[in-house]
Amino acid sequence: MAAEGEHSSRHNNPETFRDAPVSFVRRNGRTTDSQERAWEELSPRFLLDIPHGPATASLAEGVTGDPEELYGRKAPLVVEVGSGQGHAILNAAEHNPDTNFLAVEVYTGGLARTMIRAERLDLDNLRLAEVNAPELLERYLPESSVDEVWVFFPDPWPKTKHHKRRLISPEFAAIVHRALKPGGILRTATDWQEYADHMREVLDAVPQFERAFEGEWADRFDGRILTAFEQKGLDKGRDIRDLTYRAV
């Protein structure tokens, strides 16, 4: 997820005030020489050319994209918010060639690793976006253009004073709903029980969504492979909580 990624050296703009949700938090980090080479060689193929605004990873005013033009075909579209190193979305793109996938991440290291693996798999149905995900869902993609939005293991911001930074909120739910087609799906997962409770409480209360599961929690999404990050949570004895909601 974005919160586990590396800080991109390409975002050098000074911070500006934000009053809308963001899908990331700044991290320090450097890219390796091989990742820099991958960026230069592979970004023309996989990375969407999205102009940035003045804030870190923001979207420039008036910039939009048409999925049919971006992928060169009309197909179902899945957007992963905070794709990290790309493990989940690469696996999904490999096994679902008739679906278009968009990985949204702001950390150069994670994007570069994703592009390296995408080239090895020769994926034509995967694109990457280096931009704040809520802005992409709210202003870049057309309304009702996305079939599924995935938010796997977002930063739980466990301290009470930081809860306002959590991505899953009524405001973010409204943004996701705008991007989803009627009946589109929002999938989330976390290994942080208190955050799972929070996400369920928020999404249950949003009138634009209804539960797409029975019981306390959704079944584990079989389209999400087990990653090293998820395994660390399991090793610590944490339960993995999935939630699935349908846009109404």
Rank of each mutant, 00 (worst) to 15 (best):
G183S: 07
L48P: 03
L136R: 13
R200W: 09
L111F: 02
S58D: 13
S23G: 15
R200T: 04
R26N: 02
A75R: 13
P51K: 08
L121H: 12
R178V: 04
R211G: 13
I168D: 03
R165H: 15
H198A: 04
L70Y: 04
F209I: 09
M199P: 09
A205T: 00
W150F: 13
A133L: 09
T32K: 05
E4V: 00
V106Y: 01
R117L: 09
E130H: 10
L167G: 04
K161L: 10
Y245G: 09
T114E: 05
T32D: 01
K236H: 14
Q193G: 10
L59Q: 06
G184M: 03
N28L: 06
L111P: 04
I50H: 05
A38N: 11
D235M: 07
V63W: 15
K164Y: 06
H162Y: 09
R26E: 04
E6A: 01
V149K: 13
E68M: 12
V146H: 08
D122A: 14
D155H: 03
T99P: 04
H163Y: 12
F213K: 06
R187V: 15
P21K: 11
S9T: 03
P170G: 02
K236F: 06
T188N: 04
A57R: 00
D19H: 13
W217C: 09
D33P: 00
E69A: 15
W192E: 01
H7N: 02
A38H: 07
R120D: 15
T114G: 13
A20G: 03
R120C: 08
E201Q: 12
N13K: 03
A174H: 04
N96T: 13
R27K: 15
A3T: 07
T108G: 03
H95R: 14
G215C: 14
E214W: 07
T31K: 00
G62S: 12
T227D: 10
S169V: 11
R220A: 15
P182M: 02
F221P: 06
P156N: 07
L203P: 09
L77W: 10
P51W: 02
V81M: 10
H198C: 05
P21F: 01
D204W: 00
E61D: 15
H52C: 01
E138L: 09
F229M: 01
R10A: 10
V22Q: 05
R200G: 01
F229N: 00
D33S: 10
L121P: 06
L128K: 01
G72K: 14
V79E: 05
F209G: 02
S83T: 11
R211C: 12
G110V: 11
P142K: 11
P158R: 10
A103C: 06
H198D: 14
A129G: 14
L243M: 13
H95L: 06
L47G: 03
D49N: 12
S58G: 15
R26T: 03
Y140F: 15
E105F: 03
R220C: 08
H177D: 11
F213M: 11
R211P: 09
